[in-house]
């Protein structure tokens, strides 16, 4: 564990090397949150859409924003560039697991994000009220903890596609768009047509926004909450080990760039 802990700490320290960049990232993120709050406030007015009135939607948007922001400053490019620029060769001369190392780095990079998200989320909640019960908060935190490895797996898997495609930008955009739509980040899944919302609720993307939001809002309790959490954990494990399988294939495809 020691090497991974060490990498985690190094990565956390590195994020502080880019304090200004992190600050700008937070401000940008805050702007996104404020704009989506105002758009939905205008849309909903005093009414409700698909069961969401303004107080609920507000809470939903804060959760969606927090889930969307976490890991965002890490940038998919960091992992992709390791492959595209051939640094992966140096990484592979070290006696550590590649995927584990990348996860440790990714998690360490959240060091400046988590406080920022906490501050922004508390601010919104403090100014607008609507604090859920302790049971909801507990389930939400469990679920939110799964968001980190889930998002890591998506990033890691898409970065790995560089082994085959050598083009990352398009893939990264496609990934972001798919996650945005199918996680409920764009609009709550229940607002999608049934033929889209039912499969979306079973896919791993739902674990990024829809699941933590449902637990936070108390839309799912008891057995349903357990089922949602179970599905989320299932996807974390499936993607983690699926990535390992894919990695083996990727190594065969590896062409180290630049000699």
């Amino acid at each position: 564990m020691k090497p991974y802990l060490s990498m985690f700490l190094m990565s956390a320290r590195r994020t502080f090397a880019y304090r200004l960049s992190a600050l700008i990232g937070w401000l940008g993120g805050g702007a996104i949150l404020i704009s989506s709050l105002s758009v939905w406030h205008a849309l909903l007015g005093e009414g409700a859409i698909a069961g969401y009135d303004w107080p609920m939607m507000k809470a939903y948007l804060v959760v969606a924003w927090a889930a969307g922001s976490i890991g965002a400053s890490q940038g998919d490019w960091r992992m992709a560039d390791r492959i595209r620029e051939g640094h992966v060769a140096t990484d592979l001369t070290k006696p550590v697991d590649y995927q584990g190392s990348r996860f440790a780095e990714h998690a360490g990079g959240l060091a400046t994000e988590i406080p920022a998200i906490l501050i922004a989320a508390s601010a919104v909640i403090a100014f607008t009220g609507s604090i859920p019960g302790p049971a909801n908060v507990f389930l939400f935190l469990l679920s939110f903890a799964c968001v980190v490895p889930l998002k890591f797996c998506f990033t890691y898997l898409t970065a790995m596609l560089c082994f085959w495609t050598h083009n990352f930008m398009g893939i990264s955009w496609a990934k972001d768009a798919i996650i945005w739509l199918f996680s409920g980040g764009l609009i709550p899944l229940s607002m999608l047509p049934v033929w889209l919302s039912v499969p979306a609720s079973l896919l791993p993307f739902a674990g990024i926004t829809a699941t933590p939001a449902a637990l936070y809002l108390g839309q799912a309790t008891g057995a349903e909450a357990a089922r949602l959490l179970g599905l989320q954990v299932f996807w974390v494990l499936a993607l983690w080990f699926g990535a390992r399988l894919l990695w083996r294939g990727a190594l065969r495809a590896l062409t180290v760039h630049g000699g």
């Binding site: 090497p3 802990l5 060490s6 990498m7 190094m10 320290r13 590195r14 090397a17 880019y18 070290k94």
Partner: peptide
């Protein structure tokens, strides 16, 4: 973005 010492310290832990 880190001092050389940190990189060597990481290698100490890796090996």
């Amino acid at each position: 973005d880190l001092p050389v010492r940190e990189s060597l310290g990481l290698l100490r832990d890796m090996y």
